[in-house]
Structures are given as structure tokens and as C-alpha cells.
Write a protein that binds this DNA or RNA. Structure first.
Length: 575
RNA sequence: CGGGGCGUAGCGCAGGGGUAGCGCGCACGGUUCGGGACCGUGAGGCCGUAAGUUCAAAUCUUAUCGCCCCGACCA
């Protein structure tokens, strides 16, 4: 490709609004152009990377026996009514009417379409297991797109669906996909990514793992044990908290605490620590019921866990409307409406000598004992893992970090086959609803995440396996006839050798050409100039390391081939 | 959906009642040129949109749309 004809421009200044490294460089290097919030066009370089990532995914999915298909982008509401998701999913599902007034949706995921494809088509257990997948544009009407391709409304995704006759078969296949995902992300070039246990969320199903590119700019909070490898999304993470105080309590005693309402204020007033208090957090459900959680004062509520227990989405409660006194709510003598949910977090189990609200204006109770004073209480885990907590598996201190979800895998169960009425005939003549797994990878998000991992202060740095071009031919002083002639010749020869080359054929100053090449991030840069020609050599720079080599023109093609093969081998060998 | 911010040339920004500006980029000519060179000439804007106030609005008022950030949400 000749750079003089390449559509897109390199820009010097950081575009207004972009804050993430990947977003800034993709814009500055001429890879993407925004069309609307969360909606982008990919320019030629980005599309080349996009397709290389897709091809890696394709190879691995095919190796699993996957069959590539293509589902429609636009679907009628009836398909989504079958699973009930036309109503259950809110604003993210973009709905519209066609010319006849028929309700239609834009595909945000394709479980329904996958089951529809197999419905009345796959009839016998003999045809299972099978997996179908597609790589396609998805549209999700995100409430808050951000960070360029990190969180877009329209994006490319690989989604796969497997069908099984038994849970054991699903689990077996799930493990194979899990391993394939590791290969995919390693081949893309990721070094710093992990699989974590995750919430199954609206997808339904029981088991789910997410693949996370570990980076501080990630939206998901992760809990990782550096010793035994326990790793989990914060949403479902469990931990061992610092030890509770088991000293036997004295008599319960009501104490005046006045305007001290928050945990900090109460602790300061009574000269005690937050871990010797039980605080309350109040929510209300969709249907207006009160949910009260008691947990140790130094801990916070994990709302994902709590929503599962309450079986409802939760919003902060206006406690006065339920007859409670904000700042003085406590677990002794609590009076709440009949239909309320009251939870006691495990952090209170065995806690002695703690302070809690007295359910009376301006008063708290001290010397409360969980074992003595909390009756008929079941302790549940509804607290958030926090800094300093230890691993439930091995006791090591947990690391808290952040990640970008680049892939996920779910054991779906029969949610979709059951609601949509898909059945296969079993060996004994009975029928059975197939058990499904589903497996996604965000292609654009992977592209952006690898930038977050690799890019430096000069610009993009692509791994050889997904680089838009392998070599950037960058002649300096194109006004010099010798350089111009040799550059054209090298361009032809490098192409002939089967190497993907971007040729900077613009007669511009060295500074512009060199900084442009660094911004674009192509792995190998070949410089020729009057100086190198007199030495009979080309200057070769490795983008990632900055390493500089001088190679005789006669050896150039074979050396480039070797450098490319070496880097690919290094990535592939690491699988 | 809540809170905040910004819309003026392709990009980054200034100007805050009196005919539209700067830097970069772009085009042409010339001199340079291994780390974003210089000189000259030129093209490019309904100041997001709509109503209002005014002799006069990019500038003041209101509404609306778009975009960014934070929060809620996220199969």
C-alpha cells in the first residue's frame, strides 16, 4: 500500500474528548473515525487489523468443529417474544418499526436466532453436539458508550452457540472452548489477560467465565489471588475478611450518639473502629419492598450478590418512608414491613462487642454479640471484596485490579431451547431440550485492548500476528533519485516476497515520516536514505523494542522474512 | 435517566453586541530536508439549529439538537 493514497490522516494534536490511549492513538493514527456517539468507521489500517483478529478467531473456532454461519442483523419481535426478551431487556435492545408498522429489533446478541436456525432442522441426538458461530456487527443501544472502541454501540463480535444432550457433554465442550480462548488471545498478542469467574446476569444460566485484558483503565473490577490463581469478577468474588473480634461482650447498652450518623462519626464519637460496628444499607425493590442489609462497618455491599438474594433490581431506599430512622438503623429491635428482606452479611458472624443503631433517634447500642443477641439469623455473603482481604482457597492476600472484558463464555442451560420449543429425539425415543453454551469475543474491543497493553508514548505497537502491515518501508530524501529508484524497487521486491508492506512514498521531511511510522505502529520499519545507500545497507528498526539493525540490501528480504517468522513463532510458541 | 462541561475552517483553539481570527493541516511557487523546516501566494466558515431581545447577535435570552466526562445501567 502506498501511503500517498492511503485514506486517512495522521494528526498531531490529541482529539478533543478522547482520554484513553487506544482511543487517542486510533484517532490520531488514522485508524478510526467517529460517526456518532459509540459508532465508528474503520479506516483501512484498522480494518486490516480487524480482519486478522477475525481470522485467528475463525481458525480456532473451526478447530473446535465450529460451523460459521450468518444470522440476520434485523429480526422481527416475534423471535424475541419467544424467549421473552423483547420485554425483559430494556433500552439496550433497539426497537423500530418497518414500513408496514411491524415491530423489529436490531440484533444485540443471537441466542434466539441460533435456536431458530436449529429449530426443526436439528432433530436427532445423533446430530449433537454441534456449534455454530458468526462474526458480525452487533448493535447495543448503550446508555453510556465510552473510550472509543472499548465500549461502542455498534461493534464487531464473534458469537458462538453450542448444543448438547447432557450437562456433562456441555461441560466437556465448555472446557475446550475455554482453552481455545486462551490460544486466541495469546495469538492476538495479549500477554496480560486472565479468565475470571463472572456473574451470569441477564443471559441466564449457571456457570460463566469472562476473559479480561488486565488494565487500570478497565471498567470491571477484578479480584486475583497471586498464589493459587483464584480470579473472579468483583461482582461474584468471595474472600476471607480480617479476623473478627471474639472477645465476649458485656451487657448490651444503649448510648446517646446525637448527631453522629455515619460510621465514621459514630466511631469517632464512641472511640471505636469501623470493624467493631454493624452498619445497615437500605434498598428498595422494583415492587417497592424494603431490603435491609447489615454488615460490618468497614465493608461495603456487593449489590450484584444482593440483587440475586432479593430477586429484584435495587435502588437506594428512602428509609423514612418505611418508618426507619436514617443513621440509627440497627439489627436489634428492627421493625420493618412484613414483606421486607433483611440480610445479615457473613462479616457479622461471630462478631462480638460491636456497635449498631438503636432504631431510636440519636441512639446506638454497644456491646452487641452476634451469637448472643442475633436470633434465628442466617448469615449470607453480600459484601464486596476489599483491599487486604484474603483468598478463600489458600489464604494469600488478594490483589484488586481492573480489566476490560474481551470475551465471555456461558453455560446457558435450556433457557432458550425450552422457551422456543427446540427438542431432539433421544436414543430411547423420548425428546429432550438441548443444553446450550454460548461464547462471545469482542473483536473491536480486543483491538482496542491490545493497544492499551502495547502502545507506548510514541503511538501504536502491533503484535506481528495482527499488524495491519508487517513492514513499513520508509525512504528518506525521496527527492534523491537514487533513493527514489531503490525505494520503488524494494517496494516491488518486498511485495513479491509475500511480505505485507506499507510504503511511505511521500516526499516529506524525515521528522514527519519517522513520527508517522511510530504512530502507526507497524512492527518493522525499513529506512533507506542517501547515507544508507552509500553503505549498501538498509536501517531496520523494531517498533516494539526500538532495536536497530543495519542489513545489506542483498540480505534484506531474507532478513525481513526471518524477523517476521521469529516474532510470529515467539507468539505461537507461547500457546 | 441524574450531575457537570463543550459546540466558531479538516484538527486544536481564541474572540463575549458593530462586516470572522490564530496555530497546524490543505493547494501553488521557491529554498531546504536523518526527528513534525522556511519564505511567498491562495482556498476554505449561515460561529450546531430555531425562535426571541436589539438599529445591529458568533456574542444576550429561551428552547432544541449534537458531542465529551462522572454516576446509574450493561445479555
Amino acid at each position: 500500500m502506498r501511503m500517498s493514497k492511503l485514506v486517512g490522516e495522521r494528526i498531531k494534536e490529541s482529539p478533543n474528548g478522547a482520554t484513553l490511549k487506544s482511543h487517542i492513538y486510533l484517532l490520531r493514527a488514522g485508524y478510526i473515525k467517529q460517526v456518532s456517539t459509540g459508532i465508528f468507521s474503520l479506516l483501512p489500517p484498522a480494518q486490516r487489523v480487524n480482519q486478522k483478529i477475525q481470522n485467528i478467531i475463525r481458525e480456532e473456532m473451526d478447530a473446535l468443529g465450529g460451523q460459521e454461519v450468518l444470522f440476520p442483523v434485523v429480526m422481527p419481535r416475534e423471535l424475541w417474544d419467544m424467549s421473552g426478551r423483547y420485554d425483559s431487556i430494556k433500552g439496550e435492545l433497539l426497537r423500530f418499526k418497518d414500513r408496514t408498522g411491524h415491530d423489529m429489533v436490531l440484533g444485540m446478541t443471537h441466542e434466539e436466532a441460533a435456536v431458530h436456525m436449529a429449530l426443526n432442522t436439528v432433530k436427532s441426538h445423533e446430530q449433537l453436539p454441534f456449534m455454530i458461530y458468526q462474526i458480525q456487527t452487533k448493535y447495543r443501544d448503550e446508555a453510556r458508550p465510552r473510550g472509543g472502541l472499548i465500549r461502542a454501540r455498534e461493534f464487531t463480535m464473534k458469537d458462538a452457540y453450542s448444543f448438547h444432550t447432557s450437562q456433562a457433554d456441555l461441560e466437556d465442550y465448555y472446557k475446550k472452548v475455554y482453552d481455545a480462548y486462551f490460544r486466541i488471545f495469546k495469538r492476538i498478542g495479549f500477554k496480560n489477560f486472565i479468565a475470571v469467574k463472572s456473574d451470569t446476569g441477564m443471559m441466564g444460566g449457571k456457570v460463566a467465565d469472562e476473559f479480561m485484558a488486565v488494565t487500570e483503565c478497565g471498567e470491571d473490577r477484578l479480584v486475583i489471588c497471586p498464589k493459587c490463581g483464584y480470579s473472579s469478577n468483583m461482582e461474584v468474588a468471595v474472600s476471607v475478611k480480617t479476623e473478627n473480634d471474639h472477645n465476649v461482650a458485656g451487657e448490651m447498652q444503649e448510648v446517646f450518639t446525637g448527631n453522629a450518623k455515619t460510621i465514621e462519626e459514630v466511631c469517632a464519637f464512641l472511640e471505636t473502629d469501623a470493624c467493631h460496628t454493624a452498619k445497615s444499607v437500605c434498598y428498595q425493590t422494583d415492587d417497592g419492598r424494603l431490603v435491609v442489609v447489615f454488615l460490618r462497618g468497614d465493608c461495603d455491599v456487593n449489590e450484584t450478590k444482593l440483587q440475586k438474594i432479593a430477586k429484584s433490581e435495587l435502588t437506594p431506599a428512602k428509609v423514612e418512608e418505611f418508618g426507619l430512622i436514617a443513621g440509627n438503623i440497627g439489627c436489634i429491635n428492627l421493625k420493618v414491613p412484613e414483606n421486607s428482606v433483611v440480610c445479615f452479611d457473613k462479616t457479622l458472624q461471630g462478631l462480638e462487642n460491636f456497635v449498631t443503631g438503636a432504631n431510636k433517634k440519636d441512639f446506638h447500642i454497644k456491646n452487641v454479640s452476634a451469637s448472643r443477641d442475633l436470633h434465628d439469623v442466617e448469615f449470607v455473603d453480600v459484601s464486596l471484596v476489599k483491599e487486604g482481604d484474603r483468598c478463600v482457597c489458600c489464604g494469600e492476600k488478594l490483589n484488586l485490579t481492573r480489566g476490560i472484558e474481551i470475551g465471555n463464555i456461558f453455560q446457558l442451560g435450556t433457557k432458550y431451547t425450552a422457551t422456543m420449543g427446540m427438542k431432539v429425539t433421544m436414543p430411547d425415543g423420548t425428546t429432550k431440550e438441548p443444553i446450550m453454551g454460548c461464547y462471545g469475543i469482542g473483536v473491536g474491543r480486543s483491538l482496542a485492548s491490545i493497544i492499551e497493553e502495547k502502545a507506548d508514548d510514541k503511538g501504536l505497537v502491533w503484535p506481528m500476528t495482527i499488524a495491519p502491515w508487517q513492514v513499513h518501508l520508509c525512504p528518506l530524501r525521496l527527492d534523491d533519485e537514487n533513493v527514489a529508484t531503490l525505494a520503488e524497487e524494494l517496494y516491488r521486491n518486498i511485495q513479491k516476497a509475500g511480505i505485507e508492506v506499507l510504503y511511505d512514498d511521500r516526499n516529506l521531511s524525515a521528522g514527519i515520516k519517522l513520527t508517522d511510522s511510530e504512530l502507526m505502529g507497524i512492527p518493522i520499519r525499513v529506512i533507506i536514505s542517501p547515507k544508507t545507500i552509500t553503505q549498501g545497507q538498509a536501517e531496520v528498526t523494531i517498533r516494539q523494542t526500538g532495536e536497530k539493525l543495519f542489513i545489506n540490501f542483498n540480505d534484506l528480504i531474507s532478513e525481513l522474512k526471518a524477523l517476521i517468522a521469529d516474532e510470529i513463532e515467539e507468539i505461537e510458541n507461547n500457546l
